[in-house]
């Protein structure tokens, strides 16, 4: 159940309303963003449903990653960024003055294109988030071990690394590193996991395994995934948002978008005629 906010107006390009009342994890309203003088996002209004996997697709430079970075306000760290418009995460405007950016980022995790485990042990990587949020100290040693085991089991990494938890995370394979990067978000109990081309540095086998993992995160977490890979968007997402030059062109169920795109540009892009 959600309390549907009054300003929630459907735009022509978003998915058709389902019959039942839908929970949305992320809503943006007329979001504009500039890097200096360059406008990277133009009047973006999207509603991303809770508990499903939403893909952000579009050619390079269309603003997919920029939009993703808005959702945990990490854009602010990249300097000279101006935004206007609203972003509501879990029905709270994240630009309200009573929003702590640290708590926001705790519940909106991010996974990157290149796996970036920290140069510390596997064990410490999983607990790192708890450390910076002061949730680590009150735990006993066995509770800490439980947290690590649970997180690593959830990403199907436990059996591979349980005998070398103290070795450096950077010694893992890329696929294992990427799984670890997802695992280290889990002890913080996030609601939303943002993924910026999480498979593009991996080989075919790694892609399959990480996609299966993303699949298993559905329901419990809201996943937003940027991808360049049309086949992956088709395989791994429930809904897709097609962006072009900073604008949302189309947002619909993945099956509908790939079978019956509403816009000529979407059709041309997913058929690979540009991009």
């Amino acid at each position: 159940m959600s309390t549907v906010a009054p300003q929630y107006v459907s735009t022509p390009f978003t998915a058709p309303e389902p019959e039942f009342i839908q929970d949305y994890s992320i809503r943006t309203n007329d979001l504009n963003l500039w890097y200096g003088d360059f406008q990277a996002l133009m009047d973006v209004s999207v509603k991303i449903k809770k508990g499903i996997i939403t893909g952000l697709i579009g050619p390079s430079g269309c603003g997919k990653t920029t939009l993703l970075r808005c959702f945990n306000r990490i854009n602010e760290r990249y300097g000279n960024v101006t935004t206007t418009g609203d972003i509501e995460i879990l029905d709270k405007n994240i630009y309200d003055s009573d929003v702590s950016v640290r708590q926001l980022r705790r519940s909106v995790g991010m996974v990157f294109q290149r796996p970036n485990p920290l140069p510390i042990s596997i064990y410490d990587n999983v607990l790192f988030g708890m450390g910076i949020h002061d949730a680590y100290k009150p735990l006993s040693k066995s509770e800490r071990n439980d947290v690590v085991e649970e997180a690593l089991r959830e990403v199907d990494l436990w059996n591979t690394v349980k005998d070398r938890l103290k070795s450096r995370a950077t010694t893992l394979t890329l696929e294992q590193q990427q799984k670890l990067c997802i695992a280290r978000l889990l002890p913080l109990k996030p609601d939303i996991i943002l993924m910026d081309e999480p498979c593009s540095a991996l080989d075919a086998e790694g892609i399959e395994k990480v996609e299966n993992l993303i699949e298993s995160l559905r329901d419990e977490y809201t996943v937003v995934i940027v991808t360049h890979n049309m086949a992956q968007a088709r395989r791994a997402t429930d809904e897709c948002i097609f962006m072009l030059l900073g604008e949302i062109i189309e947002h619909s169920k993945t099956s509908e978008m790939f079978l019956n795109p509403q816009h000529e540009k979407t059709e041309m892009y997913i058929q690979g005629r540009y991009g």
């Binding site: 760290r77 926001l104 980022r105 970036n116 910076i132 978000l185 913080l188």
Partner: peptide, 9 residues
Amino acid sequence: VACWNMGAT
């Protein structure tokens, strides 16, 4: 970037 995205100062 990894640290900031987990909410580290």
